[in-house]
């Protein structure tokens, strides 16, 4: 994956866990992220899909939070952004469903399969199912991340202050 394994200067002890945990997390973080995206994108071909993929993505973020403390994870995905991803995933799902109602037979109708037919067992197949998988993965990842953040850090991040 092209990550450097050179010894680095020992960072000052900040929030979070020990150096070993931090280094392992640093190495594992991209792998977990890629695995989550893979599970999501190939949900219509292999076992998997939006829910497991989203959970894996959220677990990657939660691992970063556990190892490094909240600040580093918030730099990647601030809670406001997570909230937007959450709502955006739900809206994307509804939007695709409404497009099915407009172009096809009814709400959540798989209209893409008619207009853009793919080949079974290929990545481009099954019409709207991969798109719905992506929407669900966005939603689930942001939701789980937010739930864990709200339950563990237990501090306000609303507009009038909070972590900046």
């Amino acid at each position: 994956m092209g990550m450097e394994l050179k010894p680095r200067a020992i960072p000052p002890r900040g929030p979070g866990m020990s150096l070993i945990v931090k280094e392992v997390t640093r190495l594992l973080e991209p792998a977990i992220f890629i695995f989550g995206v893979y599970i999501t994108l190939t949900g219509h071909l292999t076992p998997g899909g939006g829910f497991p993929g989203g959970v894996i993505l959220a677990c990657g973020f939660i691992l970063v939070v556990l190892a490094y403390g909240g600040a580093r994870a918030f730099r990647r995905l601030p809670p406001e952004g997570a909230s937007k991803y959450d709502s955006g995933g739900a809206l994307l799902f509804l939007f695709i469903g409404a497009l099915g109602a407009i172009f096809g037979g009814g709400f959540l109708y798989n209209f893409l399969r008619v207009y853009l037919p793919g080949e079974p067992f290929h990545l481009k197949s099954a019409g709207t199912i991969p798109l719905l998988n992506i929407a669900i993965a966005m939603k689930v990842a942001a939701s789980l991340f937010l739930v864990v953040m709200v339950l563990t850090l237990f501090k306000p991040w609303s507009a009038e202050g909070g972590e900046r």
Binding site: G43, L45, F93, G97, N110, P117, A126, I129, L132, I136
Partner: peptide
């Protein structure tokens, strides 16, 4: 549905309303 995974086909095609409810 063209989806090779039968579980995903049920979740997002035959029973997409259920998935919407879960979301």
């Amino acid at each position: 549905t063209e989806a090779a995974s039968a579980i995903t086909a049920v979740l997002l095609e035959f029973r997409a309303y259920d998935t919407l409810g879960e979301a």
